[in-house]
Design a protein around this nucleic acid. Structure first.
Lengths: 248, 248
DNA sequence: GAAAATCTTGCAATGTTTTGCAATATTTTT
DNA sequence: AAAAATATTGCAAAACATTGCAAGATTTTC
């Protein structure tokens, strides 16, 4: 493995976790800790990260910048997004709905992954823009200002001609017997179309926030292939879902 | 094997794997490592890849910073954008191509104006998002990362079904006899479609920067209804345009 | 078309960088 | 303060890079 590659790996880990342990990298890329130490020293001198005892941390990140509540759900989102990103493989066609958890997934997609992303979400497209290996297809149409995704006939038409490998479906509410629900009718239509446009449907969501029922139904839990939450897959809170749904 | 062929092989490997080991190439194409080293050096100098100890890696890999678009001509852009915005009226359907001058127009559109904006440009859509009275229709498709607009069949199809009242066409080059030209073929196709999709075509551009000719032709100056520059409409520099073109 | 000039390629000698290891020092944790 | 973890330093082997050179191929010039 080239030195430059190791540097990329280290920076990527720092980008994702805001920190990195020297020993973890050594194991990950299979070089001696000494080498990783030298790498980190170089990156530090180049002002790409901050070298600290035991590893390195991200430059800008400062916990004080965030309110306590937010940082809490941000960490949960990151954990969910990490699980989600681990499912991606080179060459896949990925469909990303809107929402902040999906935005976090977009952020964590490693820059070396070669995938095609379809999305109707403006913030997600912007987030993906700087990643050189990702082909972005924006699903056009009328933009809904609240959700910042496109809605209506345009996107639904495009989706009807697509069969993506995997869809990350952002969700407002989910319930073991009432299924996935939403309060905006137009968004429901788009999400239904997304489910039809994918071989696999994955719902990445903060469990705390979604265990509820809204006005309009998108689908039954049976239509979902995998539910990713911040909880451990064996958490008792998830018991009602376990019979119909794979968990991660 | 010709040198050029080897170069193609190397670039292809870099494209696929994001990196390449000098020794691998040497073995693959059966030349000495020295030759490969010289090849990589050439490609590095031509800015096609990044030469590193042991081989080469893809450019762009760590291109994490957005293109640092020039900011210095912002004042000129603002003057042009002000003139452009003064043409807008309630109820119009407006088509905005990409480019920094159009982005400035989007910024200056007053929030009380009730118009519908079609655009294939990600930054322009983002700029318009907070304006409550503007309906935004994003023209979807594959995103070109340089220009940050969508290109290809998708947008061209959408445009073929549209007749906007007014189109602000961002332009790289314009010339009194050679017309409007561009260096990216795919962008040419989109811009041609935009011209066809509008009743009026308006080109807002910094005159200093556009008085030139590029590879591919978009249209003659006769197809343009109005040219807006930072100059006074009676400026002698604009004389060659005055017979075929309205000015502002 | 032949001679000259230029380019390409592989080789060898020499120089540089990278890497892991071991001994020692420093910091962190208990 | 002792123990554990991490850092520093110097070193040697291996990998890689550089340079100059010469033989052959290709292009240019006459």
């Amino acid at each position: 493995m080239l030195k430059e590659e190791r540097h990329q790996v280290i920076l990527n880990e720092v980008r994702i976790h805001n920190k990195v342990l020297l020993t973890d990298i050594a194991e990950l890329v299979k070089v001696s800790p000494d080498t990783v130490r030298r790498d980190i020293k170089e990156l530090h001198d180049a002002n790409k990260l901050k070298r600290v005892h035991g590893g390195a941390i991200s430059l800008g990140f400062n916990h004080y910048n965030y309110a306590n509540r937010e940082i809490y759900s941000l960490e949960k989102k990151s954990r969910i997004a990490e699980k989600a990103v681990s499912l991606l493989k080179d060459g896949q066609v990925v469909l990303l709905s809107g929402g902040t958890t999906n935005l976090e997934i977009a952020r964590l997609i490693p820059p070396y992954l070669k995938i095609t992303c379809f999305t109707p979400s403006l913030p997600i497209a912007v987030q993906l823009l700087p990643k050189p290996n990702i082909e972005i297809i924006f699903i056009g149409g009328k933009i809904n200002k609240d959700s910042q995704i496109t809605i209506g006939g345009g996107p639904i038409g495009v989706l009807s001609e697509l069969k993506a490998d995997i869809c990350f479906l952002g969700v407002n509410s989910i319930h073991p017997s009432d299924g996935v629900t939403e309060f905006d009718w137009e968004i429901v239509q788009v999400k239904k179309a997304m489910i039809n446009a994918s071989k696999k449907v994955i719902v990445p969501s903060i469990f705390e926030k979604i265990n509820s029922v809204q006005r309009y139904k998108i689908c039954d839990v049976g239509s979902i292939d995998l539910l990713i939450t911040e909880l451990d897959k064996n958490d008792p809170l998830l018991k009602p879902y376990r019979k119909n749904l794979a968990l991660l």
